[in-house]
Simulated assay, not measured.
Amino acid sequence: MTESSTHLLVVDDDREIRDLLTRYLTRHGYRVTAAKDGQEMRRYLADRNIDLIVLDLMMPGEDGLSLCRAVRAEGGPPVVMLSAMGEDADRILGLEIGADDYLPKPFNPRELVARIKAVLRRASTPTGTAQATAGAINFAGFVLDQAQRRLTDAKGEEVTLTAGEYELLVALATRPRRVLSRDDLLEITRGRSAGPFDRSIDVQISRLRRKIEVDPAEPTIIKTVRSGGYIFSPEVQAP
């Protein structure tokens, strides 16, 4: 996917910010549509092919959190969330409800472009050594199909994953029974694009556990290694 063919949807109630982002992203070769609220966002998602949403958190009426949650529930495109609230707790909350990345205001527009590119890259291609083993993987009754970027459970039903959750699962499943630190997982999935104290790995692990573990509080698939990181414990095999 090239920038010129990539369609971004900017959702922000501040007209000045919408206009600035539209102009800046257009200059970088993206097709850009701007929406002032959730109602416009839904209309554009329904009748246009949107590849990524740049979504403001604080908006009157339906805020960015509820809109992001709805996008995730409907299997919509990746979301980069913007917010004037830069505290860790706010960032983690945004990631927990399904944002693929989070950027606090004020921000450098060049960083926004870099994060958009990183999210789109994770959404469209396998990363790291997973690219060399892009077949299907069986584990604990699940099938992780890297060619179609799909996870199905024992009943054959698809488990909806965000781009970040998918890449994290691939990183773990292609390195079974190996302790991977948070830094290892950030390096594999994001190329160190996150900050040194980024907690998004923990958030995504928690979300993955809720989707694939029988009891997320007592995980048997993705186990925590004290002071070490995480380990993917089930037997893994090709179908």
Rank of each mutant, 00 (worst) to 15 (best):
R15N: 12
R48D: 14
L9P: 03
H28L: 11
M59E: 07
G38E: 03
E40K: 12
M41R: 09
L9I: 06
D14G: 05
D13N: 09
D56F: 02
G38A: 09
Y44W: 11
K36V: 05
L25W: 00
D51A: 03
R27S: 10
R31A: 02
L20D: 09
D14W: 08
G29I: 03
R31F: 03
Q39E: 15
R23N: 09
N49F: 02
D19H: 06
I17P: 01
V32P: 02
I50L: 14
T6K: 00
M59F: 08
S5A: 06
Y24A: 06
P60K: 06
R42V: 08
S5M: 03
V10K: 08
R18C: 14
L20E: 13
L52C: 13
A46V: 13
D12G: 12
D51H: 04
L9T: 01
D14E: 11
K36W: 04
D56R: 00
V54F: 07
Y44K: 12
V32R: 10
T22D: 11
R18P: 14
R31M: 03
V54N: 12
D19R: 12
R23W: 14
L21C: 01
S5W: 01
T22E: 10
Y30T: 01
Y44G: 07
Y24I: 10
R23E: 05
V11I: 07
A35P: 05
G61M: 15
V11L: 02
E40Q: 15
L55K: 00
L21E: 04
D37G: 03
R27Q: 09
T6G: 00
R15A: 15
D56K: 00
Q39M: 12
Q39F: 15
L9A: 05
D19F: 07
M58A: 15
R42G: 05
D51S: 10
R18S: 11
D14N: 12
A35Y: 08
L21F: 07
L8S: 02
R27T: 06
G29P: 05
M58E: 15
G38W: 00
M41G: 05
T33Y: 05
R23Q: 13
K36E: 09
R15M: 11
R31E: 02
V54A: 10
V32I: 08
I53V: 09
L45E: 08
L9K: 03
I50G: 03
R23C: 08
D13K: 06
L20T: 15
T33H: 04
Y44T: 14
R18E: 14
L45W: 02
E16K: 14
L57S: 04
R43V: 10
Q39A: 15
D19C: 08
Y44L: 14
E40P: 11
I53P: 03
D47V: 04
A34Q: 03
R48L: 13
R15H: 14
P60V: 13
L55T: 00
L57C: 09
H28I: 10
Y44F: 13
Y24E: 07
L25S: 11
V10I: 04
D37L: 04
R42W: 05
L21I: 09
R48T: 14
D37M: 04
V32D: 00
M58W: 11
